[in-house]
Design a protein around this nucleic acid. Structure first.
Lengths: 155, 155
DNA sequence: GTTGAAACAATGTGGCG
DNA sequence: CGCCACATTGTTTCAAC
């Protein structure tokens, strides 16, 4: 991945798409003050350079039956690469999992999940996490609310 | 927010857009087996019902000078609504902040941030967090790696 | 829920600063 | 070399069914 410095226009494009990834090219072009063709060229370039890695929908998990969200801190007994990799790959596939962070520090993983109710949460923690031999410690914290940052300046 | 039950097609549309929010309507329609017009109608409906709350770009933070990502656990001294709200609103505006979670449990907030280097991290923690009178305890953990879940079944 | 036509956006080419 | 204008192709969108 090259380290091309991004100019103001690139940042403006990224900021626009960060706020609304479904914005169309014509509107972005207008917003950043470029002709549509030029703007598209830049977006394509950012994509090919993997500065833009994709785009994800913000779904209302509640509408999908996920009435509670939690962060689960997990410590493993064994920190070998295979254990970590296997754990990570298998857990990321579970439908309850929104994100799985591999961490440095006391806890090895932080798991962001959406669950239907507290019973579902209990079952999930037991069946998917504490049932695993390599898991040493689990701590669940409820998420009340999430706010996303809006901008990406820093250049 | 109404609680209309989503059918298989709605879920399929959401799943497609969750994987790639920039997918166009024609391709989604084809994928889920609908005519483009019908598919668009459903997407519009999901948007107006706020099942779809938006879409966010997956940016390579490294390309933007964010070489490290951290999760910072924060405890406040005072849990009044005003203190919490003010803290949340002000911190969410900082350019380093990716997400800010208001939590139940021991820690009041979990802050996901992207920083240029360790010095930037140190300054950020001091200036933006520990410098605040209402902050009681701060704990920073490095993120090695993040995996996002791929599907949203659960209906 | 579909089809089809008109309106609009995406995209490639060639030309300008 | 990056930008723009324009022409072509493809997508969105709305009406009638």
């Amino acid at each position: 991945m090259s380290k091309r410095p991004l100019d103001k226009t690139d940042i403006a494009i990224l900021a626009a798409l960060y706020k609304d990834a479904r914005m169309n090219n014509k509107d972005i072009a207008e917003l950043v003050g470029l002709a549509p063709s030029t703007c598209l060229e830049r977006i394509k370039k950012l994509q090919s350079e993997l500065v833009i890695k994709g785009a994800q929908l913000n779904v209302d998990f509640q509408a999908l039956g996920g009435n509670i969200q939690v962060m689960i801190s997990i410590r493993l007994a064994d920190h070998s690469r295979t254990t970590i990799n296997t754990f990570q790959k298998q857990l990321a596939l579970l439908p309850e999992v929104i994100s799985l962070y591999h961490m440095g520090g006391e806890n090895d993983f932080l798991l962001h999940a959406s669950l239907g109710d507290t019973e579902h949460l209990r079952d999930f923690v037991f069946n998917a996490i504490t049932a695993r031999k390599e898991v040493n410690h689990v701590e669940t914290a409820l998420i009340y609310d999430q706010i996303n940052g809006t901008v990406l300046p820093k250049v």
